[in-house]
Amino acid sequence: MSSEKEAVPGKVPEKAKGATPPKVSRRSFLNWIAIGWGSLTAATLVGVAATLRFMFPNVLFEPPSSFKAGFPDEYAVGEVDERWKEKFGVWIVRTTEGFFALLAVCTHLGCPPNWLAAEAKYKCPCHGSGFYRTGINFEGPAPRPLERARIMLADDGQILVDKSRKFLWEKGEWEDPESFLKV
């Protein structure tokens, strides 16, 4: 702008000299600016993404909430299996349709009930709540049925029980496909 104003006839060659190269280089400068800001944006994006990625560690120090419970054919149809009750607090029940995992925690005050095979019911030793084989409450003070845990088939064909996800009957969650393992 200012150079134009100051332009005088005597300086013409100078101007021409100054004008022609910028014409070529302006485009290239523009390109360089575009490249520069483009890559800077890219670098920033990589940086932001890397920071986010940093928040997800490769290993976790949390105890696993899930456990492998053996192969389906190790369970008898119609039986309430107690082998995982002591270690994980879970009954695995096999019906003709498939499996479900009941959490051995009474819905009344949190005591662990016992499975009484002869009477085909879970009975809480603390206050006498009783539950059917399915986990539905029918006697005693328990306000709602036992909770189910997520159950599915692991890679190697074993049953995988995940206690971190619970399914509550009264919320209609027993319809959830993950609350029941079909065979």
Binding site: L52, F56, L60, F61, E62, S65, S164
Partner: peptide, 19 residues
């Protein structure tokens, strides 16, 4: 899933723990 969602980024774990 529980190990890669928004809550995990906040907690550094699947539940409220050391992370």
């Amino acid at each position: 899933h529980a190990g890669s969602d928004a809550r995990f980024a906040l907690l550094g774990g699947r539940f409220v723990g050391a992370g």
